[in-house]
Design a protein around this nucleic acid. Sequence first.
DNA 1: ACCTGAACACCGTTCAAGT
DNA 2: ACCTGAACACCGTTCAAGT
Lengths: 231, 231
Amino acid sequence: MAGRRAAGNTSLTREDLADAALRLLEREGPKGLTMRKVAAEVGVQAASLYWHVQNKEELLDLAADALWEGYSPLPPGLVAAPDEWRGCLATAARRLRAHLLAHTAAVRVLAGRFAPGARALGPLEETFGMLRRLGFGPAETALGAYTVVIWVQGFVLHEAVPMSAAEERGATPAEAVEEARERLAALPAERYPHLVALAGELTGPDMDSRFEFGLGLLLDGLGVLREAGAV
Amino acid sequence: MAGRRAAGNTSLTREDLADAALRLLEREGPKGLTMRKVAAEVGVQAASLYWHVQNKEELLDLAADALWEGYSPLPPGLVAAPDEWRGCLATAARRLRAHLLAHTAAVRVLAGRFAPGARALGPLEETFGMLRRLGFGPAETALGAYTVVIWVQGFVLHEAVPMSAAEERGATPAEAVEEARERLAALPAERYPHLVALAGELTGPDMDSRFEFGLGLLLDGLGVLREAGAV
DNA sequence: ACCTGAACACCGTTCAAGT
DNA sequence: ACCTGAACACCGTTCAAGT
């Protein structure tokens, strides 16, 4: 009924399934991703999927790879100059966050999965090339990229999850944050003195500020490494 | 049949359910956590759970809180001295990683959830108290803790997921890593020059080394902040 | 206040059978 | 080589009914 196969009757590929899964995830959220719905999305019966894929786990791995379709760490055409390593890395990290934020439902379901396929390899190659061109050595390139990417993914994962039951049912993010602040401030001060005192600081900064703070920390750390001549 | 309620016939609490969910997660893995099994674990019918809890989501939030039972950022009795801020923070981060690694199944299912209840508040209070005692200001305490905790959680999430389909079916972690290295090295070098060249660096370091590298980066970043007098 | 029984609308997966 | 139909053993959740 629905389906990708109406026009151009070429047969189904595993990438078609991955794309369908990703589309479903964005359209219906985490629990919209079922084998039966993916099958319907590509115009086939649920049982047919098992010809292309061993089980749902494998389909999720394919979807995790498909998530990187069209991603590039730096804006196309921008060259990575060694004397601007800080700005380059910051741009790359911000682009990574933006890309993941554009797929929050997928991030929630696929978080932690690492199954690089054809779509993820390009961005990986590009990222490492950028770091080497910025003057990082092989070891620092591998470990530094791992650290930053893990942090950004963890950051977006928390960013993507509604902050509380309050936000779940209608409250705006701003209202939910305010509610959280009040809950903290209302805690018994003799038992939780720091939580009460820090209520404002803990709930105040928006996600952009938090991101920039963490990014600054990591870049400063990499700067120390560079000055130590270890790069 | 099974159940916590045989001895001491006090009635069921929400915390009992959270504990049962966590136990199930560790005993049977992510897909062992079903409402029916949680019910059986506490000796009750599935439908009864909905008296205590609105739905499975809420139970997962309770479980995420229960995960912090018995956790403390510093070894009990160890005081946080300002001139050893680096060692204290490193110890705290390593303890956090160890605690999460002891609950890998839970980390996989509950990742990203932030619903602090009675069990999580204590550790949070302790953590912030430690940072303040180490001489960090309110803003740096809030933002610094957020950054480090997010990073550790993201790190463990990746650490907790089997690295590939290879590891899934019997291969030891070491074999899986070696397989990954070979796959990278076998890539077409003209298309993925950096991935091929970095194959060793990317798969070489074990998780402990990666953790210490990232931790070093963050601590160096915090050190820069301190020297800048912003603390 | 707390729990049960039975039902509803779904799941993932298998397998013989079709073409 | 690729897909279907039908079935199996499950799910989460609701709701009237019990005590």
